[in-house]
Design a protein around this nucleic acid. Structure first.
Lengths: 124, 124, 124, 124
DNA sequence: GTGGTCTAGACCACA
DNA sequence: GTGGTCTAGACCACA
């Protein structure tokens, strides 16, 4: 876990958790890492994780079971909807950037295909 | 111009200028907006623009002609290389995010094509 | 039984019991629910109820009959005095809040009358 | 400023600010005390005030003008609606407490009138 | 000077 | 052990 310096640490961790939930690494209904554990793993202060979990709770992706810990929402449909939203936003943002930089859709998509293939090779 | 709250303003303005240069809106060799003007346009303190131009100078995308102001580098090849780098980084970042969120390449590219089409329509 | 998150749970349960005693639901001299039962009802750890009963004992509203359990005080006069005090405190607190919020007594009392009527209707 | 121990400090300060806004002590469009100043006044840590202002911002009662400070919303109608809501909630809560404690509406309202008169005398 | 983020760490309620 | 609140205080971006 290392962080970009121009973005807030907590928002980067939020994004990280969100993606773990979308990918199923943190499955629906599953217990999330304890605040202090995640703080150690991310090498940040527990308060920062408190904030991360607070925002994800507000977003309803996770909930608190008082002293038992934090859990991923049991509502799989909700996660799916959020995941679709996430894809749409990221796609729109990417397209927007390309357009602003004057890069055509063909060229951008070609490069993305390459990148996807590259990722694939690395995984094997 | 409105800014995301999780990123520093100056880094967002840098990105903005960079894209203007890549797209040719700020053409090679061309004079950049005066600090005060850009500050007004961005509703930002001139100091912030000073910092933006300083970082872009360090990156060699722009240079200072002492009394005449800031100019986009005359080296078109350099701009092209930077533009390609930009595309590669953005593509890699996008792919990385999709992979982490467990979204397949086919689905992602399909959504991107949609987004590109959507953008196109809006412009007409 | 659900609890406000900005107040300690034990203080909310104390308030609850106190009101049960004032209303006569837990009559003078009567046996209070066993710790375990109340804990189950409130979905709370028995330790929390222990604390609740301890504080109410200190306040003399209840007492412990060693092996037989906890009982509401037999002193009806004491309960009446406490109830009057309770009313006075609540009324003073309400008035204080209204004054701080710049709400006039006429308006406040009018709204209270409405609320009392609403409660009445719901009960039928 | 002294705080009840069974309630969270930040929620008590939120209530305080809210009432100042409702009463017009902090007028619509007006600048709120700086975080550090209010922290000193309340004898709490600045972070606690940060949280207070954050929650009031979410509620739209106040907003942030980047480095200029925090301001009460300019929307007087919104404040009025919130004030009405506040009165309704407080009245409902009071009535609920009275009912649970077995105190009749006549008695409660009589005591409230007294309390209002008492307040009035103090003010003279 | 203004707000925002973050750290290190204490202390509490609840289980 | 779990989360929640709070403190003291640093450091940063922005004006």
């Amino acid at each position: 876990m290392d962080f970009k310096s121009n973005e807030t640490i907590y928002s980067q961790i939020i994004e990280y958790i969100r993606k773990q939930i979308f990918s199923g690494s943190y499955g629906s209904g599953t217990r999330l890492p304890a605040i202090r554990d995640l703080a150690v793993k991310c090498k940040v202060n527990p308060n920062t994780i408190v904030r991360v979990y607070a925002e994800l709770s507000e977003e309803k992706l996770i909930y608190t079971d008082s002293t038992n810990g934090k859990f991923v929402t049991a509502d799989r449909g909700f996660i799916e909807r959020k995941k679709r939203e996430y894809l749409e936003e990221k796609a729109a943002a990417f397209v927007d950037e390309m357009r602003q930089a004057g890069i055509g859709s063909e060229e951008a998509i070609e490069k993305l295909r390459e990148a996807f293939r590259g990722e694939g090779k690395e995984r094997r």
